[in-house]
Amino acid sequence: MQSEQQLSNEKSLEIIQQMISQAKNNISDNGLGWLIWGTMIFLSALSTFIFIYTSAENTFLAWDIFGIITIILLTYDLFKPKQKKVRTYIDDQLRLVDMGFIISLFIIILSINISVLPSSGFGFCLVIFAFFLLLKGGAVKSRSLMTGAAINWAGAIAMFIVKDFKYDMLIMAIAVLLGFIIPGLILWLQYRKQLRS
């Protein structure tokens, strides 16, 4: 791009529009986060279903492991150097959304351990998963994440209706598979395609 080239008014407007659009298009998601968290939750929920079904002893073993991995991953994320070339206004808003989501999730997990029935508590987890999916999906314009939000809300309602905890875990696994893993895979494939082009 030339610096001192004589500019026509039309060219000036074109540059402004082009650059603003370039900055807007910079909001993206490589889908890896959805794949990692989705797989962890999916495996935890599915193994809980299998443990209850087979009358295994430590029903919540997978969730205990999930909790430890979560703490390790969040600590790593907190201290790892940030490498973003650009910081947008929406990035700052999404950071607050992330923080709000993590705090809400920890309070729900705490409530399951203190007073709330697991069946209800995990249902509320799906409610905030759905809210999170909707906000993030809207920000990166991902229809699959927003569809995932609807699926997770439907899953939460199903969990509140179905009283058997074993099947609640199966519903959770399906909701996370459709709401996190598949959209994450779609975003990842799109990201890879974008890198190649």
Partner: peptide
Amino acid sequence: HSQLRLAVVSLLISVREA
């Protein structure tokens, strides 16, 4: 009113920092 400076400012107006 210069192509590159206008482009830089147009980019920076849309983001917090770059």
